[in-house]
Nucleic acid binder design. Structure first.
Lengths: 124, 124
DNA sequence: TATTGTTATACTCTATAACTATA
DNA sequence: TATAGTTATAGAGTATAACAATA
């Protein structure tokens, strides 16, 4: 199980770095297809809000996301990918082939079985 | 699959922090039950040797590992856990219950099946 | 000349504390 | 008074480059 998780993590990081961002940045990028508040994002990722600020600062500097004041609550900012960000993230996703590679070695029955077991194990 | 890996990673980090070290430190600690060279360790973890130096410096400062000049090759250092390190790592391992918790929700048949599928997926 | 490990340095991730603006 | 987000700061992980000692 350790080896499996380790292989997944390494593949994720390799794919991110191949596109010029880090694993943490890819994680944020993947969650802002639709505009999101930063607080919401911090809660979802289980990290401090100040951390999101830093991650977003770097992504914004590279033109991959943009922030705007929320129309509903002027304290909040809505975060969203730019067209460049959409493109970069799509390429990243394509190159992150772990799930595909890993299930390629399994029969269709086994793939289904694995998904079922992982889901049941997590209790979700 | 992402959720599963994420849950594993978080559990690993929580367990490590509960014992006062980080995930990376736990990882090193787990690999030096028997004396190991630092180069060997860097290759195994897929990171730079200078990184190992830093990690070991912190572990050594806390008395969890010790270094000595290798008798075979005086350029090398052999790294090994101290008795304190053994104790700390054993406690960490006990508290890292992810694999146990996760498989507790599965029947014995399913547990076996999951192990088999993960192994086959990795091609090992 | 090649290899082991260290040091200096720099970047990123992350958290805590203090702050601003808004509610 | 409480909440969203920022800034300053600090510790940890990581890599690159330059270096020392040894092979």
């Amino acid at each position: 199980m350790f080896d499996f998780v380790d292989a997944y993590d390494r593949a994720y990081e390799r794919a991110a770095e191949a596109h010029g961002f880090t694993a943490a940045q890819a994680c944020v990028l993947g969650r802002v297809q639709a505009p999101r508040g930063m607080r919401e994002l911090a809660d979802e990722l289980g990290c401090d809000a100040s951390n999101i600020t830093q991650l977003v600062r770097r992504l914004e500097a590279r033109g991959l996301v943009e922030r705007e004041i929320s129309p509903d609550d002027r304290r909040g900012r809505l975060l969203r990918r730019t067209p460049d960000g959409d493109r970069a993230y799509a390429e990243f996703e394509t190159s992150f082939e772990f799930a595909r590679d890993v299930t390629a070695g399994l029969d269709p029955d086994e793939q289904e079985q694995l998904t079922r077991l992982l889901r049941k194990a997590l209790g979700s």
